[in-house]
Each structure stands twice: as C-alpha cells, then as structure tokens.
Simulated assay, not measured.
Amino acid sequence: MTIALRRRLLAEFTGTALLVTAVVGSGIMATTLSPDDVGLQLLENSVATAFALGALILIFGPVSGAHLNPVVSVADWFLGRSAGTGLTGRDLAGYVAAQTLGAIGGSILANLMFDLAAVDFAAKDRAAGHLWLGEVVATTGLILLIFALARSGRAPVAPAAVGAYIGAAYWFTSSTSFANPAVTIGRAFTDTFAGISPASVPGFVAAQLVGLAVGICLLTALHPDAGTAADQVVAPTGERDPVLGHRP
C-alpha cells in the first residue's frame, strides 16, 4: 500500500523542522549553560542532535522514510530509477521543498522558544576550503551508511546508526557535519551557536552535493544492486495490513 504523497510531505516537513529545532535549540541551551567552554557546548549540541535524529526517524520513518535531507532523497531517486524503486521525480521535488521549508520553520521555532527574534540571519562565517572538505566527507559517509543498511536488510537499525554517525561526525569533521542542504539553509535563519551566514550557505551546499556524488559512485562500485533497496531508505515505509498485520 502506497502512502499518500501529502502525508509523506507532511512527515518530511515536520520531521525536518523538529530536527533543526533540536540542532538550534540545543545550541542555544548549550551556550547558556556552558558560556565559557566551547568544547562542552559542542558536546551538548551533538548529543542532543544525535538522540533527536534517532527519535525523529522512529516517528516519521514509517510514513515517509524519514529522509529529512535532500541529498538522501536525491540518492534514493537516482539509485532507485533503474530498479523501479524509491522516489519518483514528483516525489523528489515535493520532498526537497518540504524539507527546506521545514528546516526554515524549525529554526524560527527554536528562536521563538528562546525568546529571540523569529528571524535573525546568522553572522557566523563558515566559508573555507577545509570546512567544505569536511562536508564532502560527512555527506559521503552518510550516504554510504544509509544505503548499505538498506541493501543489507538492516534498515530497522537506521535510527540508532544514523543518529550515532551524525553525533560522531560533529567531532571528526572540521565542519561539524551539517551534511544536509535543507538544514544548512535553515541554520542561516538564526544568529546563534548553530548558525551559518547566508553567504556561506552556497559553499556548504555545493560541498554536500559533491559528497552526494562521491557517495553514489562508491555505492555503485561496492553495491551495484543498492537501488533495489531504495524503498527501505531511511526506514521502511508502507502501512501494515489491519488484518494480516504486515506490510502488503
């Protein structure tokens, strides 16, 4: 049974909004609780983000797959074309729009929760080659992880695995692992710990797209049949039959 596109788009919008709310909100809280320790701030921000991401995949995965990330959706569409799985072109356009709007809304929500201006464009400059390289690495690893899980039939562990990867990538990449064009755009709308200046957004998004391309190339080399599992990305979708108790 195919879940209606409007329901899947609502899930992608809401899930991405809550993800950015968690990223931005935990960053604001971290700077409030640990104003003089940047390392502790990053730890608090990364732990909250990792746990929130895992929980959001559990919530929205059964509806939309909980992509919450345009590069994941593009990879799902691209790899699934030959196998007749994954997103259609129409689905992809809707997913990317919902994710981007959700990310902006999530940043605004976090600002309002902490009594800040609803929109306050970030002043934090993140335009540098080593940061872009960090985004390529973070995005490549994310794509490899998600599709390797789906291809090997381990998609049910995606909430823990993806959350753990993003939490770890906060620390092992120079960019603190945005790895998500929608989240990058959303984070431009808050001048707080997690913010990125609008002028730095294009460089980050370009690096993420390079990471997407590298990830797809590696996947096709390592797992030529990865596209057959596109329907299981990030978490299995489809409704359970009310009588039989399983997905039709």
Rank of each mutant, 00 (worst) to 15 (best):
G215Q: 04
L212E: 15
S200Y: 08
S174A: 15
A148S: 15
V210I: 15
V183N: 12
T173F: 04
S152Y: 03
F172Y: 13
S197W: 01
A148I: 04
A199R: 12
T173W: 02
A229E: 14
L142P: 15
V183I: 13
A160P: 00
P156W: 05
V201M: 05
A164H: 02
V183R: 15
I146T: 08
S177G: 09
L145I: 07
G195R: 02
F172L: 07
Q208F: 02
G215K: 01
P202M: 10
F147D: 08
T140F: 08
A164T: 13
V137Y: 02
A206W: 04
S177D: 08
F189I: 04
T139Q: 11
I146K: 13
D225H: 01
A221V: 01
T176S: 13
F172R: 01
L222A: 06
R151L: 02
L142T: 12
V183Q: 13
S174T: 15
C217D: 15
R151D: 15
E135D: 11
D191G: 01
F178G: 11
E135I: 04
G227E: 11
T176K: 04
F189E: 00
S200V: 08
G215V: 05
G227M: 06
S197R: 03
G186W: 07
A207K: 05
V210H: 10
L219D: 06
A194Q: 02
G141C: 11
A226E: 04
T190D: 02
N180E: 14
G195M: 01
L145Q: 14
A194Y: 00
L145E: 15
P202F: 13
P224W: 10
D225S: 03
A207T: 06
G215C: 06
S174W: 13
P224H: 12
A158Q: 03
A207H: 07
V157P: 09
R151H: 15
L144E: 05
L212W: 08
A194I: 01
L142Q: 13
A164P: 10
A206I: 11
S174R: 14
T176N: 14
A138R: 01
